[in-house]
C-alpha cells in the first residue's frame, strides 16, 4: 500500500475547491482511506487553500501545489503557495469555549487544519510558503 502519490496544482480561484475535493477523493480511493479520513484530509487542505486564495495576495496566475502521499502508516501532505509569508503554526487559536456573541470565526479554519493533522512543519523558502504535514492512519481527529 506504500508508494501511492497524488500531485497536482490549483489555480488562484476559489472554485478550485471542487478540483481539490476530486483529487483528495481519488487519492483516498487509491490509498483506501475511510470516508472520515478523506473528509479530514479535504478539510485540512480546504482551509489552507481558502486562506491562501482569499488572503494570501497571490498574483492572478499564482498557483498552489499539493502533494499527497501514503508512506507506510502515515499520510504525508505537502503544500506550496506563492502568497505572502504566512505560518499557520503561529496563528492564534480561537477560543472555542466562549459563547456565540463573543465568537470570532477568524482562525477557526486553521484551528480545524491543526486538529486534523498530527504534525505540521512550516518553512518560507524561495519566496513561497511550504508546509509539510503528517497524519497517522488509524487515528481520527482528536476531540481533546
Amino acid at each position: 500500500m506504500s508508494g501511492i502519490v497524488n500531485e497536482f496544482t490549483l489555480a488562484n480561484d476559489i472554485s478550485e475547491l471542487s478540483k481539490l475535493a476530486e483529487e483528495v477523493e481519488r487519492f483516498g480511493e487509491e490509498a483506501r482511506l475511510p470516508a472520515a479520513g478523506v473528509f479530514k484530509l479535504n478539510l485540512a487542505l480546504d482551509e489552507l487553500v481558502t486562506n491562501a486564495i482569499k488572503y494570501g495576495g497571490m498574483s492572478r496566475d499564482g498557483c498552489i501545489w499539493i502533494k499527497l502521499a501514503r508512506e507506510g502508516d502515515a499520510l504525508v501532505v505537502e503544500l506550496k503557495d506563492s502568497g505572502r509569508p504566512f505560518n499557520p503554526l503561529e496563528a492564534e487559536a480561537p477560543d472555542t469555549e466562549c459563547g456565540m456573541h463573543q465568537r470570532n470565526v477568524g482562525g477557526l479554519g486553521i484551528h480545524l487544519t491543526r486538529k486534523c493533522m498530527d504534525e505540521m512543519h512550516y518553512e518560507r523558502r524561495g519566496g513561497e510558503n511550504y508546509l509539510r504535514m503528517r497524519r497517522l492512519l488509524g487515528r481520527e481527529c482528536s476531540t481533546t
Binding site: 473528509f39 477557526l108 484551528h111 486538529k115 481527529c141
Partner: peptide, 27 residues
Amino acid sequence: KQTDGKMHLCSLKDYIQEVFDLSGFVS
C-alpha cells in the same frame, strides 16, 4: 437571537458532528 428565533440541526454524519465539537459550536 435578536428575534427570539431558534435554529436546530439534525442528522449529522459522525465526521461532521466532530467539526462542530472541535469548533465549540455545539454550545
